[in-house]
Each structure stands twice: as C-alpha cells, then as structure tokens.
Amino acid sequence: MELGPYLVLATLEGAVMAAVLALTACGLSLVFGVMRVVNVAHGEFFMLGAVFAWWIASHIGGAPAWGFVAALILAPLIVGAIAAAADMTVLRRIDYDPERTIVATIGLLYILQQATLMTYGPDARPVEAPFNTRIAIPWVEWTEAGWALYWPWGVATTSYKMFVIAAAVAVLAGLWGLMTRTRIGLLMRATQLDRDMALAFGIPVERVYALVFGLGAGLAALAAVLIVPIQQAHYLMGHDPLLLSFIVVIIGGLGSLPGTILAAILIGLTDSLVSVFFSPTLAKILATLLVALVLVFRPQGLFGSRAS
C-alpha cells in the first residue's frame, strides 16, 4: 500500500485508541491528582465496565442499540459504586499511604479479576454495536486526466469507530466542565491543592475521595463500554489499558488532565504510526523504550511542570 493512505488508516486507528485511552487515563490521573495514590486496579475497573456492558446488553431485548445505551449509562454507575465501596472499606482504612495503597490495589486487582472469572467465566464475549457501517476513504492520485479521486484497497473505517471518538470528546468536555464549573469540581480541586486546608475549611474530604475514586473507575468503565463492540469483554482485558494509562499519565505529567489527554493522543498515534514503519513486535519494543527514556530524561512528563 502507498504511504499516504496507509498513514491515513493508521491515524484513524490511532485516534480510536487515543480516545479510549484518554478516558481511561483521565480516570487514573484524576485519582492520582486528587488522592495522590496509584490505583493498580484501574485496569480491572475497565474490564468490569466491559463485562457489565455485556451483561446488561444481553439482558435487554430489542434492537442492539437499546442494550448499548443502557450499558453506556448503567455500567459506569455500577463500576463507580463498586470502586467507591472499595475506597471506603479498604483505602480509607490504610489512610491512603502510597505504598500500602499500591499493594492493596494489587490485591483488589486479583479479587476483581478472579471474581469475574468465577461468575462471568473465561470467555471473550461480544457486544453488538448499535450501528456499524463501513466507510471507505477516498484518496487522490495523479492520472493523465489530472488529479482524480479513488478508493484505495482496504482503507476504511466504520461509523461506530467515528462515534467512539466523538463520544470520548464529549465526555472529556463534560469532565472539564465538571472540574471547572461546578461546586463539586471546586471541592475536588481544593482537596487536590491542599488536603489539610480543605479539611480545615470543612470540606468532607473522605466523601470527596470516595467520589473521586468512583468517578475515576467510572471513566475507565465508560471507555470499556465504548470499546466493547469493537473488542470483546474478557476477564484478562484490564492488563493493557492499565499499562498504557500508566504511561499516559506519567508522560502527561502526574495529575494533570490536559497533559493526560495530550499524552493519550500522542501515545495512541505513536503506537499506530510506528507500526507502519517497523515490524510490529519491534515497534512495540521501540515505543516502550521511548516512553521509558522520556521518563528518565524528563521525569516531570512531557507536559508537566517540574514537580518538587
């Protein structure tokens, strides 16, 4: 395939990945920003979102769109509630100590993953997309009659993939509004800036923490509901989103939402575009090393300001 159409296709694929990644990573970033803890179980909340999406969609009859819409609303709420419960029963009791939180969330990771295995089983199950039309993408070429449009072989996307990108943008805009324009966003930002001061001003920090933890998990679950018509729900699917979200959050500068979104776009596109030029496994090695070296030589992330 010629390079031009190839790059278009890789960019489109990268954009879908970036959209889902941005949502997932923003959840992780939010939790880190406000609570200063690393949630290793974040990928499992993503997985739970996909599994609940399958469960809801398969219990609602009628057109696939109804099941999908119900999943889009309910799955993030359920997952958010589970996460908030985990926060109140475990994380609060260890006082959000950074290292103990990592261990506790590793434990949580196994609990969620294995409980899913016991109930949902080890299969990969699909959720039907509400709509999925193939959209061929034209390209221009020079012919004897001048420039002409043609449809290169294989260069296509689907209407659903475009929807995923649009939905992610909408959700992120909503999140931005929530953080900057509402009272609850103000409380979160105040807690992020100075926990003790927030306590002194009578902000119910514990409730804010539970809310943030639930919101972070809900964002991951929402991302999973969006992706599950493209990929399938499987009990081990949380692994990759966790790793990638980690990378994105770090590159974006810990706790910075705009940085996180920029980094998600960067990582999503890099992952796709690098695979244009290198053999896939080599591409993964190079991308991974690149991320590590960015961190080594710019520890505050590409978009973060230098931290203390």
């Binding site: 990945m17 990969a124 990929q231 399938q232 081990l236 699917m237 695979s275």
Partner: peptide, 29 residues
C-alpha cells in the same frame, strides 16, 4: 495485541490468498 486494523495495510495488493491464523481471546476482533 487487541486491535489489528493497523497491521492490515501491510498486505500487498497483488495478494491472491490471505492465510490467517490467530489464537487467544482477541480472535473475534
């Protein structure tokens, strides 16, 4: 790997037969 489209443009146009084999949870994707 969980998404595959980005690899498919490597398929040369003159291909007459595409031979595929894949295992694991992502096969349907």
């Amino acid at each position: 790997e969980t998404s595959f489209t980005k690899y498919f443009p490597k398929i040369p146009r003159e291909t007459e037969v595409l031979y595929h084999v894949m295992v694991g949870p992502a096969v349907l994707t």
